[in-house]
Write a protein that binds this DNA or RNA. Structure first.
Length: 771
DNA sequence: TGGCTGTACTG
DNA sequence: CAGTAC
DNA sequence: GCCA
């Protein structure tokens, strides 16, 4: 059977299907219907047979002069960092599988993506360009670190200590029951319940007399107080009960969920539960917060009408060193948020939720308002500490991948256009990339890597142009199929807008990268909510506990679901309908909708979070290592570099540190294309012209920027050669080692084990997982 | 109440 | 085996 | 933190 190139023009191959491993059986020409169904014309002739690949000599032998250019350019580009990714999953492990996969991470910062030449003829014309590699090594993201760390628990502590002071004063005040003080001897015997009743009675009496408490900031709070033990009220307990009454609170002697608004206790969980007659904390109704005594005190001496707020970042105190509070609505909100004084972490969120309170109409019609300040910008990628992807490179890109939005496929319908809208004129290569005049070599038929110099035969700005239509089709398909998957890049923040989405008279576009020019549009309708939840999730990522770990898991799920939620969420109930959003998250969502903020974020953002996040940003450093290092005194990348605390790094971590910024940042799409093109050329020129090498992953899915470059390598076997033996591994090895040293370092040296090369691995991109 | 994707490399 | 990455 |  004759080998037909997989991506021949008439037959855009379904790479996904191929990767799924069903399509290619050694020696088996038949193509599963699944593949046929998805490939344009049904007859996918691509198959792989066993045999042997070309002589090793061939793979290393030639050293075309172009190669030097490539290397020089690659080098110059300062691209780097990565590892081979093996993704075993798809098929039963099968050594005969022909696919190799590798990922190249890259960084975007220096991307002088405007310059682009023919694949082969990259001249050294701009050697003056900054060599990022040299400068990018250890960059302490001081600003980031700073802003992250400074906003910390200290503010909470401040509150607490203030509270403590207030507590002293509170206790110092004369007892409400002073007259009864005479029964001093008996006081040891009074139970809290009795004492509470006594106090209430006294209060009623006083009120009957028209006396009023001076600062009744606790008015309306129906408090069940639980001291350490409930046998007898200690003097402390009595003092506190006293205090509560004095400040307008209501002491509820017997716990009644229907009446009590707050449970105040500093006791242990067990004591409280015993007193309440409950078995676990979860049995306490959600609407009743369990708070520490410090919460009660938090309103002491506070100016009325002013609510404390977790001061934001740097400007949290003025010159006088006093904390700047921010005014907020209600008069009665003069106390700390309950969650700031939660007695039990498990019940942090318990309490009267804001949105219920405000249901009473206090709030403006805000909830339905769509124009919340969308804190856009840093997509807070999982590692979000790296240099931000520069937006202008990305925006420049927006034009590269335009194509008609009509139904998929026919590759001839793929057009390139400038920023004016476009008819299908396959002739206008006006990509910014081409500004410097070098039309990129572009084979229409993707797989063709004929070592020849057929450069220039095609003009196209994007090596993968052919795939756009298909990718677009995939997206389109996704739209009609709700099994939305996430993107492991964490980059899937694109809204899956209907393909028709037109905007400002601009051409309809199919990819998010195309839409990049219309930033406000590509965001989800619930973007503000998502941002906040993501922020909280990022914080939890830096926490050590299992609990937090799963919380992150959960938030992630909820956030993904929210992204594809088509409508603006306006009610708790609606939020709950989203898969993955439970009661807690729904409440958080409502809080965000109503206030634009999420108090829990401030609460969780403790001192260590910022530093831990930074440490975790190092490739090879996860939760545990990060905390270990933190405990050893490391706070910054410099600390790590200095091996503060005597920490040791694995080789992967060293590399991760060295290329911190690179790994943590994304490159604009065209840069990925550039690198890929070079790699592809190396593969063709130096290794084997028959190699089928294609770019996958986020690039293929049309993202505007890429965190890495996913590459699929395989080889047709129509010539009877195989992937077995040393050949393919050698190919890969050669490919890798042909990269400039810097690449090799990070890319190969650190993360790749030789063992990897002993086998043939399969790489799959995320988009394939689901179907 | 237990489970949360699943696999492979490093040390 | 624990830790990490994808 | 969610879900079955």
């Amino acid at each position: 059977m004759e080998y037909t190139h997989p991506v021949s023009e008439q037959n855009p191959v379904d790479v996904d299907a191929r990767l799924l491993g069903r399509s290619y059986r050694p020696g088996g020409p038949e193509v599963p219907s699944s593949v046929q169904g998805r490939s344009n014309q049904g007859g996918d002739n691509f198959h792989l047979a066993t045999g042997n690949i070309g002589a090793p000599g061939k793979m290393v032998a030639n050293e075309p002069k172009e190669r030097k250019h490539l290397e020089a350019t690659l080098h110059e580009k300062g691209r780097l960092a990565s590892h081979i990714v093996t993704s075993p999953t798809i098929m039963e492990k099968n050594d005969s599988l022909p696919n190799l996969g590798m990922k190249i991470l890259s960084h975007a910062r220096n991307a002088s993506s405007s310059r682009r030449g023919k694949v082969i003829k990259l001249t050294g014309e701009d050697t003056t360009r900054a060599r990022v590699l040299d400068t990018s090594s250890i960059t302490t993201p001081a600003s980031t670190a700073d802003s992250k760390t400074r906003f910390s628990r200290s503010s909470i502590r401040d509150n607490k200590s203030a509270s403590a002071r207030a507590a002293g004063q509170g206790k110092a005040e004369p007892s409400l029951l002073k007259p009864e003080k005479s029964k001093k001897k008996v006081k040891e015997l009074i139970t809290p319940l009795e004492y509470a009743k006594l106090l209430q009675a006294k209060l009623a009496e006083r009120e009957a007399q028209g006396k009023r408490s001076t600062k009744p900031y606790l008015r309306g709070k129906k408090i069940f107080y639980c001291g350490g033990d409930m046998q007898y009220a200690s003097s402390e307990t009595r003092g506190r009960m006293d205090y509560i009454i004095r400040h307008g609170g209501t002491l509820v002697p017997v716990f009644d969920p229907a009446e009590v608004t707050h449970i105040v206790t500093d006791a242990h969980e067990k004591s409280l539960l015993r007193v309440l007659g409950l078995r676990k904390l979860g049995d306490i109704p959600e609407h009743i917060p369990t708070v520490k005594w410090s919460w009660v005190l938090s309103g002491f001496g506070r100016r009325n009408g002013v609510r404390p707020r977790q001061p934001k970042s740097a400007d949290r105190s003025d010159e006088k060193g006093t904390t700047v509070w921010q005014d907020d609505e209600s008069e009665d909100e003069v106390m700390d948020y309950e969650l700031m004084h939660a007695s039990f972490k498990e019940r942090l969120d318990a309490g009267p939720s804001l949105w219920r309170k405000t249901d009473r109409g206090k709030h403006k019609e805000n909830p339905l308002n769509l124009d919340h300040p969308t804190n856009r910008g840093n997509p807070s990628g999982s590692r979000g500490l790296g240099a931000a992807v520069n937006g202008d490179a990305t925006s420049k890109l927006s034009r590269i991948s335009e194509f008609t939005s009509d139904k998929l496929i026919s590759r001839d319908s793929v057009v390139y256009a400038d920023n004016t809208s476009l008819p299908s004129t396959p002739q206008i290569p006006r990509s910014p990339l081409d500004e410097k005049a070098k039309p990129n070599r572009q084979e229409r038929s993707l797989g063709h890597v004929d070592g020849g110099e057929d450069v220039d035969s095609r003009i196209c700005s994007d090596p993968l142009a052919e795939f756009y239509a298909q990718a677009r089709a995939e997206r389109y398909a996704e739209l009609h199929d709700h099994s939305v998957d996430s993107d492991s890049d964490g980059e899937d923040s694109i809204q899956k807008a209907p393909p028709r989405a037109s905007h400002k008279g601009e051409q309809k576009r199919g990819f998010l990268c195309d839409a990049k020019g219309a930033p406000e549009r590509i965001q989800c309708i619930n973007q503000d909510v998502i941002d906040k939840l993501e922020e909280l999730m990022e914080i939890h990522k830096a926490k050590p506990s299992e609990e937090d770990h799963w919380r992150v898991f959960s938030y992630g799920k909820a956030i993904r679901a929210l992204r594809s939620h088509p409508t603006r969420i306006r009610s708790f109930e609606e939020a709950r309908t989203v898969r993955g959003v439970g009661d807690k998250t729904a409440r958080k969502i409502m809080e965000i909708l109503e206030t634009g903020d999420l108090r829990r974020i401030a609460y969780e953002r403790t001192d260590d979070v910022g530093a831990i996040s930074i440490l975790q940003g190092i490739y090879g450093v996860g939760r545990n290592i990060a905390h270990k290092w933190y405990a050893n005194g490391c706070r910054t990348l410099d600390d790590v570099q200095a091996r503060i605390g005597g920490i040791t790094l694995t080789s992967a971590q060293e590399t991760g540190l060295k290329y911190y910024d690179d790994i943590n940042s994304r490159m604009p799409r065209n840069e990925a294309a550039e690198i890929f093109t070079m790699i592809k050329a190396v593969a063709a020129l130096d290794i084997d012209p028959k190699l089928f090498i294609e770019i996958m992953g986020s690039y293929r899915r049309g993202k505007a920027d890429c965190g890495d470059i996913d590459i699929l390598i395989t080889r047709p076997t129509d010539d009877g050669k195989t992937h077995h033996g040393n050949s393919v591994p050698a190919c890969l090895h050669y490919l890798l080692t042909s990269l400039p040293q810097e690449y090799y370092d990070a890319f190969y040296g650190s993360c790749v084990d030789k063992a990897l090369l002993q086998k043939i691995y399969v790489f799959r991109t995320h988009s394939m997982i689901l179907k």
